[in-house]
Amino acid sequence: MSLVRDSSLVWLASGIVGVSFGAVSVAGGLPVWVPVVMSLVVYAGSAQFSAVGVLLAGGGPVAAAATGLLLNTRTAAFGLAVADIIGTGRASRLLGAHLVTDETVAFALAQSDPVRQRRAFWISGLGLFAVWNTGVLAGALAGGALGDTARYGLDAAFPAVLVALVLPQLRADATVRRCALLGAVVALAVTPAVPAGVPVLLALAGLFLHRRRPVEAAA
């Protein structure tokens, strides 16, 4: 099935990033349970990396949590975007909310019809959760034995995954394309000056270019 095949590469890449998260945390002096439990209950890669980074740099728990939370504010917008895909059932909402990540949202939105979007969300979300947490556990147990994961070029794989996933929407809609371009320029311009997580939020300023669609024939 093509959804599983396409997801599995994201899983593979995430698993390896998870291994490096576990390894980095333990090599920095945290006990094994910290990266493992954090991955299960927080389940947001970039926020976990920054929170542990701040913690290991001696920034204190408040700064560590605040940095991670700032990075995760975007998930509220993602929740709104995939609400229709997840549906209105209580259980599916409570579980689905925890599975909202950049990759899974992008993967679900990239599908063409609602049934496929729903399947894509759950396949990608559940698979990613399983693989990410397994990777973190393996990395935490292996410690520093893995070496520098940058050598495998994985840091390029993630932005490339996002390119592949948003490209269909950028091709189809010139308005969204203009907004996204302005947003990316804003985000890049402010990156050196503001804390992690803020550039992406400021990118939403790109929506100023989003004009109201001309009203079509009355429904």
Binding site: A77, L170, G183, A184, P192, V200
Partner: peptide, 25 residues
């Protein structure tokens, strides 16, 4: 409409900053 456009804007900003920057540089 803005929410779904916003999701794409966020993803593109993530990929741009993820591709070009590391720790603010």
């Amino acid at each position: 409409e803005l929410a779904s456009a916003g999701a794409v804007v966020l993803l593109v900003a993530l990929l741009a900053t993820g591709a070009l920057t590391e720790s603010g540089g």
